[in-house]
């Protein structure tokens, strides 16, 4: 369950990243706003989006159930502290990492998704366009101009990286898609993914914050 929902969310991350990278297109946000408009008006995307929310909730609920199971399976913990941990830090702390990411998601959704959907968003009309579009770019730029906001985003992406570092290969393992031959490949791809995707995500607030400072 964690694996299936997780893999879907990983796929979502890729799509989301490709879209968001248009924020850095350097065209004053036109392509991003067009993309944003397309996304909010496509039935397919809207369905997938609902599914996405469902999966996030499922992912969280199942993780809560898993921790309860783990606690029930070992009611009394150990006191001895090992000099050397035998499992990776991220694999041992998926719960903490996930919680931070969940917090981030709440802030993120409140800041953008909620704002764009229900808030007062300025409009912009591009030459040759049939109708005015929401100026989502404007909202984003305003948000990232705040240092703490951009900083929080960047930090959260670090947590996401660690979460993915374990989650990516773990999902393949749980689905039985790993074996001696493919394991090194899955590991490598997972690690690259866990570094690259959050880094690119983090690049957006970083660049836009610097832009807001006039760089």
């Amino acid at each position: 369950m964690m694996a299936l929902t997780g893999l879907f969310l990983i796929l979502f991350l890729v799509v989301h990243l490709i879209g968001n990278l248009q924020l850095l297109a350097g065209d004053g946000g036109r392509r991003f706003n067009e993309y944003s408009h397309f996304m909010s008006h496509s039935l397919l995307i809207q369905t997938v989006s609902k599914l996405n929310f469902a999966f996030i909730i499922l992912h969280v609920l199942y993780s809560l159930w898993l921790s309860r199971q783990a606690h029930a399976a070992r009611p009394q913990g150990y006191e001895g502290k090992p000099a050397l941990q035998t499992a990776t830090w991220s694999s041992r702390n998926m719960g903490i990492l996930g919680t931070v990411i969940l917090l981030f998601l709440i802030v993120h959704l409140k800041g953008f998704w909620y704002e764009l959907k229900f808030g007062a968003v300025p409009s912009i009309t591009y030459a040759g366009a049939p109708e005015p579009l929401h100026n989502a770019y404007q909202v984003v730029r305003a948000a990232y101009a705040q240092a703490w906001y951009a900083g929080f985003y960047i930090l959260s992406m670090v947590f996401l990286g660690f979460h993915l570092h374990h989650g990516f290969q773990s999902a393949f393992h749980t689905l039985g898609l790993s074996n001696y031959r493919y394991k090194p490949l899955i590991r490598t791809v997972g690690t690259v993914f866990a570094i690259l995707v959050p880094m690119l995500f983090a690049l957006i607030p970083a660049v836009m914050h610097l832009q807001s400072l006039g760089y």
């Binding site: 898993l66 199971q69 070992r74 041992r92 998926m94 749980t174 001696y180």
Partner: peptide, 22 residues
Amino acid sequence: GFGHCTNTGACEAECPKGISVE
């Protein structure tokens, strides 16, 4: 009443016979 596997790999590392998580 055993817990679930979250693929941390601690089992393989601690196994005295080196049984693989594969």
